[in-house]
């Protein structure tokens, strides 16, 4: 097993190299570059120096006067030493900006994932046990609504109902108006309160697919021969479901949930934007629009690492829950 993991990690490094190279190439070939925008602004503000001159100076300043291949290796050699540089758009070190926003996204993603799993798995199992019952049809309809309708649709409705009509929550933002006057504990509660609607929205749009997965798997497992054997042994229905069937349903679920772990850090762009939460999804979107190469490179490489880790984690978890795939 250790040998397998080491092999997978070595492969991951190779993949990572090519992924980051591709991202860099793409960033350099974007039609709107940060440097051009700034040069145009400076030239407009100060006509004595022409746009061309500004562009030359800025290119040199930002290290864009080399070809993309050279540029990539310069970035790589810096990155390997842990220097990701300053963000052009935000004007602070990339890691500092990242560290200040990531935890909002992580908290949002983690809360949503916990609620999704806690809702989807029991509901999925129940609707499989009582196939074609009212509960089954109801969960199927709600799951499909959640999957099909876009997030901003629900956000609008949630805001309408809970923020405008009922007035329970603020329309957007991460802190309330009186945040600074609160005690630290009240401040924490304040943030939590502002997280409720975004989390609710992520739960609505994310639970459906997991629920359907659970239901399908459970149905398949419940019709299998070993469940009949378990019943023939005289085990109670509860034990058959919760022990024999659940362990087998877990196999595909673990891989799916393991694969969503990077999603915790990727941020939810639409939700964060509409609720004005300064999370990583919103921040990186802004950086990308501005052509901020250092920040985008850091963020996307980080995402690539997480994705590779996610697949590795789900493969390892697969072996943990299914003895048939254990590598000897």
């Amino acid at each position: 097993m250790r040998k397998y993991i080491v092999k997978r990690l070595l492969w991951s490094i190779l993949i990572l190299f090519f992924v980051s190279f591709l991202i860099y190439l793409l960033m350099r070939s974007l039609p709107s570059s940060y440097v051009e925008t700034v040069a145009r602004e400076r030239a407009a503000a100060n006509p004595q120096v022409s746009y061309k001159q500004w562009l030359e100076r800025l290119n040199e300043l930002y290290g864009l006067n080399v070809n993309p291949l050279q540029g990539f290796f310069i970035w790589l050699s810096q990155a390997l030493r842990g220097h990701f540089g300053d963000s052009w758009y935000y004007g602070v070190p990339v890691t500092q900006k990242f560290g200040s926003v990531i935890w909002y996204s992580f908290a949002l993603g983690a809360a949503a994932l916990i609620f999704q799993v806690a809702l989807a798995i029991p509901l999925g199992i129940q609707s499989a046990r009582k196939q074609y019952s009212t509960l089954d049809y109801a969960t199927t309809v709600f799951a499909l609504i959640g999957i099909s309708l876009p997030g901003f649709f629900f956000i609008t409705i949630l805001k309408m109902v809970f923020a405008v009509n009922l007035g329970w929550f603020d329309l957007n933002g991460i802190v309330g108006r009186m945040h600074d006057t609160y005690s630290p504990f009240r401040q924490f509660l304040d943030i939590c309160q502002h997280m409720v609607l975004p989390t609710l929205n992520l739960v609505i749009i994310g639970t459906g697919s997991l629920l359907r997965y659970t239901r399908t798997n459970m149905l398949e497992v419940l019709n299998s021969d070993y469940i009949r054997t378990a019943r023939a042994e005289g085990l109670s229905e509860r034990r058959v479901i919760n022990h024999h069937a659940f362990r087998n349903t877990l196999i595909p679920l673990v891989t799916i949930i393991g694969g969503t772990l990077p999603g915790l850090f990727s941020g939810a762009l639409i939700t964060e934007t509409l609720f004005k939460i300064p999370g990583i999804g919103y921040t990186s979107y802004e950086a990308m629009l501005a052509g901020d190469i250092p920040f985008t490179m850091f963020y996307l490489t980080f995402m690539a690492i997480l994705t590779l880790l996610g697949t590795l984690i789900s493969d390892v978890l697969y072996a943990v829950v299914d003895p048939r795939v254990r590598v000897s």
């Binding site: 299998s224 021969d225 070993y226 009949r228 054997t229 378990a230 019943r231 023939a232 042994e233 005289g234 085990l235 109670s236 229905e237 024999h244 362990r247 087998n248 196999i251 829950v321 299914d322 003895p323 048939r324």
Partner: peptide
Amino acid sequence: MEKIRGKDISMIFQEPMTSLNPVF
């Protein structure tokens, strides 16, 4: 019925390949 299954009356199935729970 659960109390007499396996104790007073038990069953051997046709498919030994799939009749045992693969994860235990």
